[in-house]
């Protein structure tokens, strides 16, 4: 008789395991690897997890045996063998093997990039991103969104402006610290196209948790087209509202901090806005890239991102604010 019975344990376990494993996927998960380094790290995680489960089962089985199944005092010889063998020799050898394995994969993990070089600087709280051409020409400056070609090993130079940050794209590779006054490096080799999320992984001030970025991995040909476009000047204002928004941008002194190539705006304090409308997010992964979000960001900057040095523009009348947001959002 099976009708009316609760689901069997195995079915429930399968459902539970599926739900847990589904949680491993996503744009910001080291267990959903999309890069060569991340694949190795994910394998390492699963091997260690399986080993830990086996050890846990063995220890508990032994505990059950000596306390319930056969609760006789052990001979001293057996007890000492268990303590020295299981408590000293086994963990020492096992840790030695794991350390050896981790060290053996390190040179490959740290191998240099072979194509493009990207310099990324951690600011408070955003990412300055510069694509360095191989011919030594002027870098293509961008911010808060990293694009990479699939299947190519890109060299990443890391720096920090004022405080320590840590650069981490869990789907692509492990973390690397960004330290003021020191150059650190890593290389990223994406294995599939897609959009991923990076995050600062070292506390760097009030808005540390709001210091994220998008990573878009493209086919090499698409990436080359994008990079050529990204290196070009900003589009001209498409309509009257955008033209008025540009006037507001210049009149309010935004150009002192932000650059928009092709216009007099050449500031380098804040993120380059030449193609800001083409990015997926605003304020370093904090808001969606919409006109409304732009207007909110301009009017409530310090509320959205506490401690930020950019002043708020809540004194602007709503029409001017909307025009400015319209102009910036149109900078594809």
């Amino acid at each position: 008789m099976t009708e009316g019975r609760p689901p069997r344990c195995s079915s429930m376990a399968a459902v539970g395991a599926t739900a847990i494993l589904a949680g491993c996927a996503g744009q910001q998960s080291a267990l959903d690897p999309a890069g060569r380094e991340a694949l190795v790290l994910a394998d390492l995680f699963w091997v260690l997890l399986c080993g830990a489960i086996v050890l846990w089962l063995l220890v508990n089985a032994l505990f059950l045996y000596v306390t319930r199944i056969n609760p006789r005092p052990l001979s001293r010889r057996l007890a000492e063998t268990l303590i020295i063998g299981g408590g000293v020799v086994f963990p020492t050898v096992l840790l030695g093997i794991l350390l050896g394995y981790a060290l053996s994969i390190m040179p490959e993990q740290r191998a240099a990039g072979t194509g493009l070089t990207v310099r990324i600087t951690g600011e408070q709280w955003w990412w300055r991103i510069e694509y360095l051409p191989e011919d030594g020409g002027a870098p293509v400056v961008s911010a808060n969104e990293l694009r990479l070609p699939k299947g190519q090993r890109t060299e990443i130079e890391l720096a920090a402006a004022r405080v320590i940050h840590s650069f981490w794209i869990p789907n692509l590779a492990g973390k690397m610290d960004m330290i003021p006054g020191r150059a650190t490096r890593m290389a990223l080799e994406p294995t599939r196209t897609g959009t991923f999320r990076g995050q600062c992984a070292e506390f760097c001030g009030m808005s540390h948790a709001l210091m994220a970025f998008q990573v878009v991995v493209q086919e090499p040909a698409d990436f080359a087209v994008w990079l050529a476009r990204e290196g070009g000047p900003a589009v001209r204002p498409a309509d009257d509202r955008a033209a008025r928004g540009q006037d507001v941008f210049m009149a309010e002194g935004c150009a002192a901090c932000h650059a928009i190539r092709g216009t007099p705006a050449k500031g380098t304090v804040g993120p380059d806005l030449t193609h800001v409308g083409g990015r997926a997010t605003l304020a370093a992964g904090t808001l969606p890239n919409t006109e409304q979000a732009f207007a909110e960001w301009l009017a409530e900057t310090d509320q959205i991102k506490p401690g930020v040095t950019m002043p708020t523009y809540h004194h602007l009348d709503p029409t001017a604010l909307a025009d400015l947001a319209h102009y910036l959002n149109g900078l594809h």
């Binding site: 020492t92 840790l95 030695g96 350390l99 050896g100 060290l103 390190m106 040179p107």
Partner: peptide, 16 residues
């Protein structure tokens, strides 16, 4: 003894 072996391992594995 174990500590010394672990400290020396990176050199044995050619870490640069």
């Amino acid at each position: 003894f174990v500590g010394v072996v672990y400290v020396a391992l990176p050199a044995a594995f050619g870490v640069g």
